[in-house]
């Protein structure tokens, strides 16, 4: 055997994490077993605590400590606008600009038959359930990839009968970006969504 069993077990657990290959898993494992026991305990406890304490917000499906997340329960946020994103990290990205005052809806993925992901695997039903009442606008903020486009199209078709206004984020040149360095995809969409001066 290459490693003592407890070490081997730890390595194979770490290897299951996204973006961690066998080499990184070994490096992390060696690092962890050399740390003081208290530090290691804190790490393992915070893992379990995070898992136990977090759930999906029952409205927007973002990660939350309470039944309703801090955004959904904030009276100052515009509850008639929903920004639909693929992942919780996208909520964080939009929040960072401090300009958007509506709510979110996290799909937890994009449609991708190759990966076995259809609408039933996404939080689509939960989005539909939010549309009764006085919803003003749904902003679809999925990435401009083929999967992001397909998911946006699916939502647009699905939401059309409800009469709510559905918009899609514009994609184009990064501000401060140089034309010469933009990849063709970015330039293409910048050209497609150009505006009159």
């Amino acid at each position: 055997m290459l490693f003592a069993k407890p070490l081997g077990d730890l390595i194979s657990q770490l290897e299951k994490l996204p973006g961690i290959g066998p080499k990184s898993a070994q490096r992390l494992a060696f690092y962890l077993v050399r740390q003081p026991e208290d530090d290691v305990r804190m790490l393992s406890e915070s893992l379990v605590r995070a898992k136990q304490a977090l759930r999906f917000c029952e409205r927007c499906q973002n990660m939350s400590e309470l039944a309703l997340c801090s955004i959904c329960s904030d009276a100052k946020r515009d509850q008639t606008t929903i920004c639909v994103v693929a992942e919780p990290r996208d909520v964080a990205a939009v929040e960072r600009i401090n300009e958007y005052h509506g709510t979110y809806h996290v799909l937890h993925g994009l449609m991708s038959p190759m990966d076995g992901i259809g609408p039933e695997n996404l939080k689509v039903r939960e989005l539909l359930a939010r549309l009764g009442g006085e919803m003003a606008e749904v902003i679809v903020a999925t990435n401009p990839t083929i999967e992001g486009d397909a998911t946006a199209l699916y939502l647009a078709k699905l939401l059309k009968p409800t009469g709510v206004k559905v918009t899609r984020l514009a994609y184009g040149m990064p501000v401060g970006g140089e034309l010469d360095y933009a990849d063709s995809a970015t330039l293409h969409s910048a050209l497609e969504y150009r505006r009159e001066l």
Partner: peptide, 16 residues
């Protein structure tokens, strides 16, 4: 470059 963009989007959609 726009052709290349259409081509790669098309190929991916085809796989899907």
């Amino acid at each position: 470059p726009v052709y290349l963009r259409h081509l790669s989007m098309y190929k991916r959609a085809l796989e899907q």
